[in-house]
Design a protein around this nucleic acid. Structure first.
Length: 418
RNA sequence: GUGGCUAUAGCUCAGUUGGCAGAGCACCAGAUUGUGGAUCUGGGUGUCGCGGGUUCAAGUCCCGCUAGCCACCCCA
């Protein structure tokens, strides 16, 4: 008989199976607990946004220029699957009138993001982030707060050996003149740059600094550094952030080549890596200040700061650390009816659900086979019902670990199972 | 988007210079006249990723495609 190919998952996406859920729950529960401890509230925003919202805030970034899932809906609207969460959260902050409440608005969010990237370990086309955003304040204390929150989260889920990299990239006042200096420095070297970097030189020169092309590395050393060209306000902010981090005993490495892929970042930028990181796609959390984002979206100019944590990567590290997290049995009790006793089995299950999680085996299999699956399920008890039992409204309650079995009236089951 | 490696049973994989498709685990049935785990017995459950090509003959060699992994790129 000809068979068609089974339909498999879309490239670059994956299922999080029940066996993996304990680790995911731990990562998310830890994140939510830490966020609430800092006074942050949960928010959920849509996965689809107007493509323009996404494009306005990062047209020169790979995530938007090359990796955006974009489509027209049936009404002709140009939409996109969000590649990151911050643009949508800032939009919701205004649309939901959070800008009229206490400032800053402290928000956290879980959800999937989408980028049309080439799949690789730790890199998926649908991936999950934990986002934290503090919107409506330019205070340097908030830069430090979100860095500390990110670190607390990673520590809380069992990741101790971390590396925090930190930099500042100025703002709309001091960055443009700095970029001119950078271009002036690189223009004479243009012929020695790779093709990608030659394009970046005029379009997004900041990205020249985190180029990993070996022959371009020597040029970085002589390149002007933004830290030497900050405006007074940015310099003041930068020193405040560093002072607050020092006061909090948070260790970090200054990385003058750390820039962000997204254009709306200003001032502070940071990334957390696992301590022994060797690969390139293993940033666990990264973020920074985005004082230019609200305005880029067409809303009143409003400062903000936050970070995005990668749940896919964090859960992978938790699992690799071999923690004690295990799946428990989905049901404490399995009801095994004899023959055609589905009605009675369902009733018994209903009674037992007052005190325990209960499943019913409705399959037309031998009792032996049902017992085997009860064992595999990991049920603590089975409730056996024969036709004769059902007529008398009794059942055989068997404790799987000991094999002890007693006959009980149905109504007695909850007290016995409690 | 670029390059390398890979794709055989539900899973992990073996399959020689091209010559009848295999193992372990899992699964099903039985030993136990319906009561699990241990043991034993029996059962292969497969368009060899897809499509072409070479050949008397292709899982094996060649080409294309798809997917996975790894590196680049980029980021979470």
């Amino acid at each position: 008989m000809p068979r068609s190919e089974p339909i498999k998952a879309v490239r670059g996406v994956r299922d999080i199976l029940p066996a993996e859920m304990p680790v995911w729950r731990a990562a998310q529960a830890g994140a939510a607990a830490v966020a609430r401890r800092y006074g942050y509230e949960e928010i959920i925003t849509p996965i689809i946004e107007h493509a323009e919202l996404i494009e306005r805030v990062g047209e020169d970034t790979d995530a938007v220029a090359k990796e955006l899932y974009r489509f027209d809906d049936r009404g002709g609207r140009n939409l996109a699957l969000r590649p990151e969460a911050t643009a949508g959260v800032v939009r919701a902050y205004f649309e939901g009138a959070l800008n009229q409440g206490a400032q800053p608005s402290r928000l956290y969010l879980f959800g999937p993001m989408f980028r049309y990237d080439r799949p690789q370990k730790g890199r998926y086309r649908q991936f999950y982030q934990f986002n934290v955003e503090a919107i409506g304040s330019a205070a340097p204390g908030l830069d430090t707060e979100v860095v500390e929150l990110a670190g607390d989260w990673l520590n809380e889920v069992g990741l101790q050996d971390l590396r925090l990299e930190l930099n500042t990239i100025g703002d709309g006042k001091c960055r443009p003149p700095y970029l001119e200096r950078l271009k002036e420095y690189y223009r004479p070297l243009k012929s020695q740059l790779g093709g990608d970097s030659q394009l970046r030189l005029e379009r997004n020169p900041l990205r020249l600094l985190d180029s990993k092309v070996p022959q371009e590395q020597p040029f970085k050393n002589g390149a002007p550094k933004i830290i030497d060209h900050l405006c007074d306000e940015c310099a003041e902010h930068w020193s405040s952030v560093r002072r607050l981090l020092d006061a909090a005993s948070i260790e970090y490495q200054l990385n003058p080549y750390l820039v962000r892929g997204l254009d709306y970042y200003t001032r502070t930028v940071f990334e957390f890596y696992p301590g022994g990181a060797t690969g390139q796609q293993d940033a666990l959390a990264s973020g920074g200040r985005y004082d230019g984002l609200a305005e880029a979206e067409g809303w009143p100019s409003t400062p903000g700061v936050g970070f995005a944590g990668g749940l896919d990567r964090v859960t992978e590290l938790i699992a690799a650390a071999g923690s004690e997290l295990t799946t428990s049995s989905p049901a404490d009790v399995l009801v095994l009816p004899d023959g055609e006793l589905a009605v009675e089995a369902a009733e018994v299950a209903r009674i037992c659900r007052a005190v325990r999680s209960v499943a019913v085996d409705y399959e037309a299999k031998s009792l032996r086979a049902k017992m085997r699956s009860a064992n595999k399920l990991g049920a603590r008890w089975v409730v056996l019902i024969s036709a004769e039992d059902a007529a008398r409204r009794v059942a055989q309650l068997r404790e799987m670990s000991t094999g002890d079995q007693v006959e009980l009236a149905w109504v007695e089951l909850p007290t016995r199972l409690a």
